[in-house]
């Protein structure tokens, strides 16, 4: 009884994954292209999921569409263009580099640059102020104290 319950617990989550339809492809390359495409296209209904992960009805329709186009011999580019023409660039998980997405793409480099500049100026300021004037007698005293302790 216990064992059966445990098995059920193990198997139930895998049912959720099985929501993706089984498809037939002529060759493994086409299949790989199909999976690659549905990984890269966003589901418009649940916006933080791609087509491959989403169970939304629209995601299923768009997977059907992708499959239909890929088996009709359309290229990856034709398929993404088809989606972009209808749903906008938002369907692409990886947005293209253009004037609207420039900030998005350049922000990491920009922020890293600002960070490096701040770091550099801090280090420099510390180095400049890190040499206090100590007169020779004090220095000698400090050295002898340290030397005594080491001994």
């Amino acid at each position: 009884m216990m064992r059966a319950a445990l098995w059920a617990l193990i198997l139930v989550p895998s049912l959720a994954l099985a929501a993706i339809e089984s498809r037939e492809f002529d060759d493994p390359l086409t299949e790989a292209r199909y999976h690659d495409l549905i990984d890269k296209l966003r589901c418009l209904v649940c916006q933080n999921q791609n087509l491959a992960d989403s169970n939304a009805e629209l995601a299923r329709d768009l997977r059907d569409k992708t499959y239909e186009m890929i088996t009709a011999g359309k290229s990856d580019e034709e398929i993404t263009d088809f989606m972009v023409a209808r749903y906008g660039e938002f369907v692409l998980y990886e947005p293209p580099f253009n004037i609207h997405t420039m900030l998005l793409w350049l922000a990491p480099a920009l922020l890293a640059g600002i960070g490096a500049a701040v770091f550099y100026s801090l280090v420099r300021r510390r180095r400049d102020t890190a040499a206090p004037d100590v007169d020779a007698a004090d220095m000698e005293k400090a050295r002898s104290l340290l030397g005594n302790r080491d001994a």
């Binding site: 418009l44 209904v45 629209l58 329709d61 569409k65 209808r86 749903y87």
Partner: peptide
């Protein structure tokens, strides 16, 4: 079938 919906970019 929702085909025209796809043509019009309907999602919600």
């Amino acid at each position: 079938e929702g085909d025209t919906g796809i043509e019009w970019g309907v999602y919600g």
